[in-house]
Design a protein around this nucleic acid. Structure first.
Lengths: 206, 206
DNA sequence: AGGAAATTGTTATTTTTTTAACAAAGGATG
DNA sequence: CATCCTTTGTTAAAAAAATAACAATTTCCT
């Protein structure tokens, strides 16, 4: 698998989630237009994505759901399942931990960090919260590869530096402060305010 | 202003936020490459976006920050400032309310809804929480145009229907359940799990 | 003043993403 | 068994977005 397009990776994640649910219903096969309906996209997009990962359905029967789910897993999951740290145990941090726990993904949040002494030592949905000072040590010990930043924006850049210094390979930044990372660290940013303003803008007209 | 590209609208929101901060420092003008550095994009992108909204900087002095902020406001803000409701007062809902309040955006969350009797009647960062049954009435009375869904996924579709029935024009869905909305309702969806899996995938290689 | 450097505005090119088109295969139908 | 319908896989075209290119103009420098 050379390199899948950005958007294809996003959709694969969503195919897998939807298809996993369907598996429980006993249904074994699914057509591209059925998947498309689930996610409100087009069947062509589905077939194209599936083609890109080299899977082949059977004509007139569609795709074997279990096979497809398994293949997507082999493509987008790392072997041992990625281990994640979250920095900033405010409401957003708690929401993410709780949410990921419910979904039961192969992704695991294995450590939280905060500056607030009241939070340190407590566990949130079975994730232990460490003080910031132990970040480097814990990230090394727990073999954490990914960091999620949910701190106030003022400290986002400093947190990112620490994470990178500790050897993290990917960062998901929920702070509105744009980060600067070296080329070998993958960075994804999401800004809620921007999303809201976008909705506000496009909801105006039509 | 015909229709700005999706990505341009997103960036305009970010330009405004960064530039507003700079205004306080007394700096009055800024170059495209300075803006680009703030957001880690290219100067061409900045100039192109600014061109699209019809603003013109002065050669060798750059853009007048106050003017540009004001113009972006006229472009992307609705006249009275959009009024927003949030459905689901879990951690994520609280995080969003708190966050938007701090930023002091023109967007205002003016009502929250939840099913939990303990939450109803309480205020969160000065936003009052109503029972779900009052949704239609409150949305009409408060002239709310935008809804944010932060409920558990199982009820997302039902909530969306109610919002649409109550006359909402735009929806921001933080649930992993893809929604179906009529053409005249603008829908934006954000799925945290997908973002995490994407980071996990791209952090693997390089 | 004259030339060099910097910076904008805009057009052109390239890349990425989506959408369309359609041949091939397999089953269903009569 | 021949025909028709459905659905896949893939190539081609279109649309959207990012990047590059560059003329024009202002300031700075000598």
């Amino acid at each position: 698998m050379k390199h899948l397009p950005d958007k294809t990776v996003e959709r694969l994640s969503q195919y897998r989630r939807s298809l996993s649910n369907i598996l429980n219903t006993g249904k074994t096969h699914i057509f591209s237009h059925e998947i498309a309906n689930l996610l409100h996209i087009t069947p062509v997009q589905v077939r194209r994505d599936i083609m890109l990962i080299g899977y082949t359905g059977t004509l007139r029967k569609g795709y074997d759901i279990a096979d497809l789910v398994a293949l997507i897993g082999r493509i987008i999951d790392s072997d041992p399942g990625q281990r994640i740290a979250i920095v900033g145990m405010g409401n957003l941090g708690k929401a993410i931990i709780h949410y990921l726990h419910e979904i039961r993904s192969r992704l695991q949040i294995v450590a939280a960090f905060d500056i607030n002494p009241d939070k340190i030592g407590k566990t949130y949905t079975s994730v232990l919260c460490y003080p910031m000072e132990q970040m480097e040590e814990v990230i090394a010990r727990e073999e954490i590869r990914i960091g999620i930043i949910t701190t106030p924006p003022e400290v986002a850049a400093a947190v990112a530096s620490e994470l990178i210094h500790a050897g993290i390979r990917g960062i998901l930044n929920y702070t509105p402060k744009p980060l600067n990372v070296p080329d070998d660290v993958y960075l994804e940013e999401y800004d809620m305010i921007t999303s809201m303003e976008k909705v506000a803008y496009f909801a105006k007209e039509g």
